[in-house]
Computed example of a mutant assay.
Amino acid sequence: MPNEVLVLAYSGCDTCRKALKWLKEQGVAHQVRPIVDMPPTVAELEQWIPRSGVSVRKWLNTSGQSYRALGKAKVDAASDAELVSWLAADGKLVKRPVAVTGGAVLVGFQPEAWARVLTAAR
């Protein structure tokens, strides 16, 4: 489907479950990609980060174990290219869910933003 939304989500994530429920309730066609098993590639991130309108650092799941394992100091010292490679290597490091449409990329679930972008795209 040309208007189908790709959603990168983790089944153990409450926020992801809320987002998927919201998509279903809104009738938004979507395909789910398990972010832990199939994290975004470096090439995808290089396209999606600029389209998201937020910096690569806003893509980090700062409340997760992967982030804590790296440590704030190491993350703060990392270049954007290093962060992209870490995000591509560990789907749990990515703030989720990520919704990808033809024109926009949404990071994290904010119902108002999702409604503005995803229901207008239908």
Rank of each mutant, 00 (worst) to 15 (best):
M1G: 12
M1A: 14
E4G: 06
V5F: 11
L6R: 07
L6F: 09
V7C: 14
L8P: 00
L8Y: 15
L8R: 11
S11G: 14
G12E: 10
D14K: 06
D14R: 05
T15K: 00
C16Q: 01
K18A: 11
K18Q: 12
A19H: 05
A19T: 13
A19I: 12
K21Q: 15
W22N: 11
L23K: 01
K24W: 05
E25A: 10
G27S: 03
G27K: 03
G27I: 04
V28Y: 00
V28M: 04
V28S: 00
V28N: 00
V28P: 01
A29K: 03
H30Q: 01
H30V: 02
Q31C: 04
R33H: 04
P34W: 01
I35K: 00
I35A: 04
I35H: 02
V36M: 02
D37E: 15
D37Q: 11
M38Q: 09
P39M: 03
P39T: 13
P40M: 15
T41V: 10
T41C: 01
T41A: 05
V42H: 00
V42A: 01
A43R: 04
A43P: 02
E44K: 00
E44M: 03
L45F: 09
L45G: 03
E46D: 12
E46Y: 00
W48N: 03
W48Y: 15
P50W: 10
S52R: 03
S52P: 09
G53S: 09
G53A: 10
G53K: 02
S55Q: 08
S55H: 08
S55C: 06
S55M: 05
V56N: 01
W59D: 13
N61T: 12
T62K: 14
G64W: 11
G64M: 08
Q65K: 05
S66Y: 04
Y67L: 06
Y67R: 06
R68Q: 15
R68I: 14
A69W: 03
A69M: 09
A69Y: 04
L70D: 09
G71V: 13
G71I: 08
K72N: 11
A73E: 15
A73L: 06
A73T: 12
K74Q: 15
V75G: 04
V75S: 08
D76F: 02
D76I: 08
D76S: 10
A77Q: 09
A77W: 09
A78S: 14
A78M: 11
S79N: 09
L83H: 07
L83A: 10
V84S: 04
S85Q: 14
S85V: 05
L87E: 10
A88C: 07
A89N: 05
D90S: 06
G91Q: 06
K92W: 07
K92N: 07
L93A: 13
V94S: 09
K95Y: 09
P97S: 08
V98Q: 00
A99S: 14
V100P: 04
T101Y: 00
G103F: 08
G103P: 01
G103C: 10
A104Y: 13
V105W: 10
L106D: 12
L106V: 15
V107W: 05
G108E: 12
G108W: 09
F109W: 10
F109K: 02
Q110Y: 06
E112N: 08
E112S: 11
E112G: 01
W114K: 02
W114Y: 15
A115E: 14
A115L: 07
A115C: 05
R116L: 12
R116S: 09
R116Q: 15
R116M: 04
A120E: 14
